[in-house]
Each structure stands twice: as C-alpha cells, then as structure tokens.
C-alpha cells in the first residue's frame, strides 16, 4: 500500500496556542513550542512530523485558520 506522508505549516505569529489542533490530531504529531511568538503565545509545531498523514483535522479545528496542510503518496 502506498505510504502517505503529510506535513503542515503553522503561521506561528498568528497561532494563539489554544492547543486544539494537538488534541484533534489522532497521531500525536503536534505540540506547543517551548518558545513564544510575538504575542507571547506558545505556538503549535510538529513534534513527530513523520507521523503526519496530512488528514487536515488540525487545520479544520483551528479557530484562527493558521494551519496549511500538504500530503504526498510515497511509493517505496
């Protein structure tokens, strides 16, 4: 079966660290950063990027629409 790899891009300056994306992610890809952005929020980032399948659940639940999702089929 083709293995699917996904990845997301977070607009870290606009993220408010509400953590709802991490909760929505079934594969525990996301977590809040240790650093903070310009507004003082810990922002969401991929802590286990290889687990991401590009399902976009994180982007769906994000109240500020700061997540962009990519997905590609990997035929090895």
């Amino acid at each position: 079966m083709a293995k699917i790899r996904g990845a997301i891009v977070v607009d870290t300056e606009r993220c408010k660290g509400c953590d709802l994306c991490a909760i929505a992610c079934a594969f525990k890809v996301l977590g809040l950063s240790r650093e903070v952005n310009g507004k003082g929020y810990h922002y969401s980032e991929m802590v286990q990027p290889e687990a991401c399948t590009g399902c976009a659940n994180c982007a769906l639940v994000c109240p500020d629409s700061v997540i962009t999702v990519y997905k590609v089929n990997v035929n090895n």
Binding site: A59, L60, V69, Y70
Partner: peptide, 13 residues
C-alpha cells in the same frame, strides 16, 4: 519535499 504547492490539501479560505 512534502511542502510543495502540488501537495496542498488544505489552506485558509
């Protein structure tokens, strides 16, 4: 390699 325009599946409207 994944983050490429052709692989985009979801973006802000």
């Amino acid at each position: 390699d994944i983050i490429r325009q052709e692989n985009l599946v979801y973006a802000k409207s």
